[in-house]
Design a protein around this nucleic acid. Structure first.
Length: 627
DNA sequence: GCAAGGTC
């Protein structure tokens, strides 16, 4: 029988796919790498007929990128970094993975790539092909690619029966990204470190003998930029005074306050004139202009993505993005939750979500809730989750797989498991239902309104305590057209207040919205710029904020002073690269063209930065004296 | 000693 080698991006996928295609009858062998197992079975592929199959995997990338030896740090003038030769290298772990691929492929007839169906997965697929061909040249003509977006059995079987080819454009796009990140990162990191490394004073807590690295990275700088931006907005904030009108009526001991529909105005005289007009025409009497009453809902959350998990664990449990992702990874390795790195916020139709809810019925804290959801009785029955707009075509939303019961002893893992599970049950619930009433008074020519909410059914909120929705005080029972006596009518003043310093949860949101980093790397970038001493965590009244250091502020302003056309500290450059990568994927540009464009841009920027490097030093000295 | 992206 022909021999077919299948290679997935990680062992969990290899294991699951082998289980499905073999009908549960595969046999497992160890590999030279402790992360990787080989699964043997037989299967009838359309390209090979009945075959002996080995399903194996890598663990992420199989190769890395670096400059060649002659262009190491200090061995060449920095500008050569922009056109030095690039070599593929492997770490020890990658060497072990590669030797497994080579050994399995030596006597194979076909190779089928089962990496994740995203851009990075396509590139890893290409790395696997390169490695396989080193051991068996004949394989080159017999490479197929499985297209799948989740691990439901029928879907996987269909992927096996409908092989595709690797998408070379996606491979080219990733290679472009790697090359640009490497050359720009290395060049500016060496430059900045040599320029400023000996001049900056490091804050206490850093190792004194270690020369600091002042790095540039296409993701590090925009991340820093967000933090500095907020810091400056607060520093430069000038409060502005405003004035507004507010009414209240009292019926018995019940007081209701009505807010001015104009909000507030920044002109004291204008507000005073309106105020007097109202008093002259209506004194202390107002009329009920209208009462609007309508059913209202509080929507259950969307299915859980990595970014949402990190944001909410930061907000609700004060866990850093890195710590929450690590806890989620542990839970995934132990089989409690699904793969934690996903951008997908809708569930594939074929998934058996009821079975997953069923798993939770034995839990002490939310078991009864889950039972009621599946009981067929009562108001809050199982609902298919809302569908968001994002799909990474590789992983479903994060969800619990089995009940953890008392099986967890790590505090962070407990918290993250509970959050993931409550979020999942909330997704499969009814929206909360309520009734909202808005009453509007007319006083003179002006309108004022008050809002009241009655929560009728909490539904998902019963299992999701993180979100609050409470009934407010009931509005008085008044009819449209009725005259009412005001218990007070006041002109008040206030002033605008600055925003708060950046929280990690806000920073994650900004990075995600601007395409800085990915679900898997956002936490690392935030961590990295702390290591580099660009920002620091600071606790202020129970909140942890991210504050830039002198060095962080200086880098952002220093590059502003140099005046690059696209600021390093803004997300624009990175976004532009994404646009170019998309064009490579769509066949509208080729790799060489994009690499050339971007690298020559960075070369220009390097020239400019280098000729105005004094501005970087001056900026640092200036800022140090004022911060 | 440098990047960002996978994964463990």
């Amino acid at each position: 029988m022909p021999r077919v080698i299948c290679v997935a991006e990680k062992n969990s996928i290899a294991k699951a796919v082998a289980g499905i295609l073999s009908g549960g009858r595969s046999s497992r062998r160890d590999s030279p790498s402790k992360y990787i197992k080989n699964y043997d079975f037989t299967f009838d592929f359309p390209f090979s007929g009945p075959s002996n199959v080995t399903m194996t995997s890598v663990a992420g990338h199989l190769t890395g990128l670096d400059l060649d030896q002659a262009h190491g740090w200090g061995k060449c003038p920095i500008p050569q970094v922009f056109d030095a030769p690039i070599v593929d290298i492997r770490t020890k772990d990658q060497e072990k993975m590669a030797s497994n691929i080579k050994r399995e492929c030596r006597n194979a007839d076909f190779l089928m790539i089962w990496t994740d169906c995203d851009r990075e997965g396509e590139y890893i697929g290409w790395e696997i092909v390169q490695t396989a061909v080193q051991a068996n040249r004949a394989l080159r003509e017999n490479v197929f690619r499985a297209s799948f977006s989740h691990l439901e059995s029928r879907h996987i079987a269909q992927a096996a029966r409908n092989p595709n080819r690797l998408d070379q454009r996606a491979v080219d796009a990733v290679r472009t990204r790697m090359e640009v990140d490497l050359r720009s990162g290395v060049a500016f990191t060496r430059f900045l470190t040599e320029l400023l490394g000996s001049k900056i004073e490091r804050d206490s807590g850093s190792k004194p003998n270690q020369r600091p690295i002042i790095s540039y990275g296409t993701c590090q700088f925009p991340t820093l930029g967000f933090v500095v931006d907020r810091f400056e907005r607060i520093r430069k904030f000038v409060p502005e005074k405003f004035w507004y009108l507010v009414l209240s009526i009292s019926i018995g001991s019940d007081k209701t306050t009505f807010q001015w529909e104009r909000g507030h105005l920044f002109d004291r005289l204008a507000v005073a004139v309106i105020y007097e007009t109202c008093i002259e025409s209506s004194r202390n009497m107002a009329k009920v202009a209208y009462v609007k009453s309508k059913p209202t809902s509080k929507y259950r959350p969307y299915p859980l993505t990595t970014v949402e998990l990190q944001k909410n664990c930061s907000r609700y449990f004060k866990m850093s993005a890195k710590v929450s992702l690590e806890a989620a990874e542990k839970l995934y390795q132990k089989g409690y939750i699904s793969y934690p790195r996903t951008e997908t916020d809708s569930y594939p139709q074929a998934m058996d979500l009821r079975a997953l809810v069923q798993q939770q019925t034995s839990e002490s804290r939310w078991g009864t809730y889950a039972q009621n959801q599946l009981s067929g009785m009562g108001p809050n029955q199982f609902q298919w989750p809302r569908a968001g707009k994002n799909d990474d075509k590789a992983h479903p939303p994060i969800h619990p797989i089995i009940s953890a019961g008392a099986g967890l002893d790590n505090e962070n893992e407990k918290k993250v498991y509970e959050y993931v599970t409550r979020h999942f049950l909330a997704c499969c619930s009814e929206d909360a239902k309520g009734h909202s009433t808005t009453m509007t008074l007319q006083w003179g020519p002006e309108f004022f309104s008050a809002n009241g909410i009655v929560v009728l059914e909490k539904n998902f909120l019963e299992v999701y305590p993180y979100m609050k929705w409470d009934s407010t005080k009931q509005l008085p029972n008044l009819n449209v057209g009725q005259d009412v006596e005001l218990s007070s009518y006041l002109m008040k003043d206030g002033q605008t207040s600055p925003p708060n310093q950046m929280t990690e949860s806000e920073l994650i949101l900004l990075m995600d919205a601007n395409g800085i980093g990915t679900d898997a790397t956002i936490a690392e970038h935030i961590e990295k710029i702390q290591q580099r001493d660009y920002i620091k965590k600071k606790k202020m009244n129970k909140q942890t904020y991210l504050i830039p250091t002198t060095l962080g502020v200086s880098l952002v302003h220093g590059f502003e002073a140099i005046g690059l056309e696209d600021s390093f500290a803004k997300p624009f450059l990175r976004r532009q690269m994404e646009v170019d990568l998309k064009m490579i994927c769509d066949g509208n540009k080729n790799r060489a063209e994009v690499v050339n464009d971007l690298i020559s841009k960075y070369q220009d920027y390097y020239g400019l930065t280098s000729s105005r490097k004094n501005k970087l030093i001056e900026t640092y000295t200036d800022i140090k004296s004022v911060m």
